[in-house]
Design a protein around this nucleic acid. Sequence first.
DNA 1: ATTTTTTTTGGCAGCGCTACCAATTTTGGC
DNA 2: GCCAAAATTGGTAGCGCTGCCAAAAAAAAT
Lengths: 334, 334
Amino acid sequence: MDIDFKQQSAVTLAEVAEAAGVGESTVSRVLRNEGSFSHKARERVMEAVERLGYVPNRIAGTLASAGSRLVAFVIPSLSNIVFPDVLRGASGVLEKNKHQAVFSVTDYDPEREEALVAAMLAWRPTAVMLAGFEHTEGTLKMLRASGCRVVEVLDVDGTALDLAVGFSNRAAGRESAEFLLKRGYRRIGYVGHDLDRDTRAGKRFAGFCETLASAGFPLLDREICSGASSVESGRLGLERLLARRANLDAVYFSNDDMALGGYFHCLARGISVPSQLAIFGYNGLDIGRVTPQPLSTIRTPRVETGQLAAELVVTNAPPQVVDLGFELVEGATA
Amino acid sequence: MDIDFKQQSAVTLAEVAEAAGVGESTVSRVLRNEGSFSHKARERVMEAVERLGYVPNRIAGTLASAGSRLVAFVIPSLSNIVFPDVLRGASGVLEKNKHQAVFSVTDYDPEREEALVAAMLAWRPTAVMLAGFEHTEGTLKMLRASGCRVVEVLDVDGTALDLAVGFSNRAAGRESAEFLLKRGYRRIGYVGHDLDRDTRAGKRFAGFCETLASAGFPLLDREICSGASSVESGRLGLERLLARRANLDAVYFSNDDMALGGYFHCLARGISVPSQLAIFGYNGLDIGRVTPQPLSTIRTPRVETGQLAAELVVTNAPPQVVDLGFELVEGATA
DNA sequence: ATTTTTTTTGGCAGCGCTACCAATTTTGGC
DNA sequence: GCCAAAATTGGTAGCGCTGCCAAAAAAAAT
C-alpha cells in the first residue's frame, strides 16, 4: 500500500475568508495588520485562522507584492566557526526584522559561488551576502543586474559592489608582523592553508611578509597545508616546518585553528612557548583565551560583522564600506 | 557590452519568449529540460536567456507548480560547531538535489522554536529539520497539519513525528559512565551547562547518573554553568567544582567544549591528567584529537546525520528512525 | 432628516510561472 | 504520395496572495 507523502492541500486565505464570512481583502489586511478593519472583523478572522490552522503562504504573498524578505548567504565554508559566527550575528537581526536567511556553501570555489549565486537570485532575495571581494566576472555581472542589495563581508581591501562590512586583512597581517618584530623575533616562519582559495588569508600573508621584508627580516620559510584549515593541519604543518628549519623563533599561522595546532605541538614536544618558539594566530577564537597560555592573536568582530551587515540591509542603507577594525590580543604565546 | 539601465531585474519568462520568438511554454520547457522541444528551439531560447541575463523566478515557479525545494532548519544554536556540522552535511546533499536551505536559530527556546517553525512553514518547505524530540504542543500541531516532511535530528530517544536521524544520548551517557567505572574511577563529578534547555545534554546526564548509581558509585557532585556551553565556562566550572570537592578522580563534561576548558584548567594548574583527575567529554571535536593528550570522548556522526537527513528528505523516504550510533574514543584524558 | 466625511469592505486584476490541452508540424510506414 | 503516429509548439487557466478601486456602511456635521 503506498502512502502519499505529498503536501496536504493547505488552508488558503480564501477559505479563511469564507469561514469568517468576510472578504479576502479583509483577511489579508487583518493578518498583515495594515489598512483599516473593524474590531469585529479582526475577531472573526482570527477565530477562523485559529480554527482552520491557517498558515499564510509567503510564496504567494511575495509574488503578489514585492520583496521576499529573504537574505541569501553564499559562504565559503561551515567547517570552522568564522562563518557560523557571521550567520549568528546576522540571524538575530534578520529575525527581529521578519527576514529569513537562506544559505549555501561554496567550499571556497569561485565557480561554485557563481552557480550558487544564480540559484539564490532565483528566490529574488532582498540581499545577497558574500565573503570578500573576489568573485568571478559572471557573479559580479549577475549581482549587478539583479537589483538586489549585495553585502561583501569580512574584508575591506578591495572594491565593493554595494555594501561591505569587515576589516582589513592586509592590515591585520602587517600588525601581526609589527608585533612580532617589536617583541624581538627575527627568524620568522609561516604555516597556512590554501592561500589561493582563501583570498583573505592570502591578504594577511601578503601584509605580513611585506612588513617583515621592509624591516629587513624577511620570512624565512613557510609551510602550506592543502585542504581546509584545521587544528590538525596546523600541528602537522608546524612539525614539518620545524623539521626543515629548527632555528625559527616565531611562527605566524593563517588562523587560530592552525595556531592552536601549532601550540599543542609545542606543548606535546616540550618546546617552550614563547621562549623557544612564539606562536601567533588570527581570529581570536574563544578557545584561545582559555588555553594554559592565552593565544597571541588578532581578534575579529565576526558576530558584529554579521549584525551590522544585516542591519544595513534591513534599513536599506546607502552603499558604503564599513571597517569594523580588529584588536590585537597580546596573549602569552608571543 | 551590456548596457545597464535600471537595477531592477525585471526580465521575465515572457520577455525571453518574445525575444526568442517562441512561446512561453517552450521557454519553460527548455529551461527545466522537461517535456519535448527541438534543438533549434533550445538554441534560440538559450541565446535569449544569455543575452537578456534572465534569471528564473522560483517564487513564481513554486507557486505555479508544487514543492518549493526549500528545506527549513530550525536549530538551537550556531555557537558551537555541532549544528554547523549538521548543516554542512545536509547542505552538500541538498545542493546536489537542487534544494535550498533556509534556517533560523531558536537559542534553545521552545517558544521561539514555535514562532520560527510557523515562519518557516509560510515558505511551504519540502521539509523542516529540528533538533531532538522536545517541542511545544503548538509546534507539533503545526508540523502535523503542514503536511511537509519533518526530520528530527541528533537524538533517537523519544517519539519521532516522521523522520529522525541521530543517536542515543542516553546510551552515550551510559557508555561514558561505564568507561570511567571500568577504568577504576569512583569519585566522579559533572560539569555542564543548562540541562533544561539542552534536553539532549540532559539525557546524557541522566544516562550517566543512572549507570553510576546502579554500579554503587553515584555522582558525587555537579556544577551547572548558566548560559551556553563554552570552553571558558568548562574551565570555570571545573575550578568551582574542585574548590568544593578536591577529591574527585574523574569529571564528566556535557560536551567537548566544556571538557577542553577543564583540561586546560588542569594543564594550567599542574593537575596531572588522568592520574590525578580524569576528563571525559562528548562530541568528538577535531581539536580534541590534537591536544597534547587526546581527549577521551564520544564521537558523534554530525555531518553524516545532516547528510542522511537530507537524503531521506530528497528521496521522500517513508517515516523511520535511523540510529547512526556513536563511537567511544578512549583518548588519553581518562 | 439630510448631506458630508470617514471608515470599512469586497471584487478583481495581476505577480511570473507551470500544467494542461489542443493545434501544428514532422516523421515514418506502406 | 498519403495517412497515421509522434514530436513539437503555443494559448490559457490557474497557483494564493496583495494592491487598487469603488461601493457600502458608519460617523460626523449640518
